[in-house]
């Protein structure tokens, strides 16, 4: 089959990011704003309703073949992150980078990083920092994934 050269190559496709919330909290203004400016930075952002189950997040990450999962947490829902990280691992999605945004106490941040979370973005972090961080993680994820590509 002849390839249509007007189509772009794999590497130039925009980062795909899942922006979601787990647990009980439903304050999703922050995650919607982040989703909007990731979009404005040229990324493809899959949005969800709040209160996703761990298994749902894994399923979404898998079906949508995302590079980065961003979890917004305002109250205590970040305490579920270790479970999410384990579930992603188990589903064979270890290349997917996970970031958390919101209110996370210092002690818990250490716990999240130990569980494999790539970065925690605290309130007040500028949008440039978030965009650059997510873009860099997406590139890493894709590189790791391309390493195991079928070609």
């Amino acid at each position: 089959m002849e390839r249509n050269m007007s189509e772009v190559q794999l590497s130039s496709f925009p980062p795909r990011v899942l922006v979601t919330k787990i647990g009980f909290d439903g304050h999703d203004r922050g995650s919607r704003i982040v989703a909007s400016f990731l979009r404005d930075a040229g990324m493809e952002v899959i949005e969800t309703a709040p209160w996703q189950e761990i298994s749902q997040v894994v399923r979404l990450a898998l079906e949508e073949d995302v590079d980065v999962v961003g979890v917004s947490s305002l109250s205590a829902d970040h305490l579920l992150m270790p479970k999410l990280m384990a579930a992603l691992q188990e589903a064979g999605l270890s290349h997917v980078k996970v970031v958390v945004g919101g209110i996370v106490p210092d002690d818990d941040e250490v716990m999240l990083l130990n569980a494999g979370v790539a970065q925690v973005f605290h309130p007040g972090v500028g949008r440039d920092e978030i965009v650059e961080g997510v873009a860099a993680f997406a590139a890493q994820a894709r590189e790791q994934r391309n390493g195991e590509l079928v070609t």
């Binding site: 979009r39 493809e44 899959i46 949005e47 969800t48 079906e63």
Partner: peptide
């Protein structure tokens, strides 16, 4: 978005009933 090339893919928000059903696969 014609400006940034990015996109908000939100259709799944309203297709949330099937995430634990292996008979349904959704891609945005």
């Amino acid at each position: 978005s014609p400006v940034s090339g990015g996109a908000l893919l939100g259709d799944r928000i309203r297709m949330n009933d099937h995430t634990d059903d292996d008979g349904v696969f959704i891609r945005s």
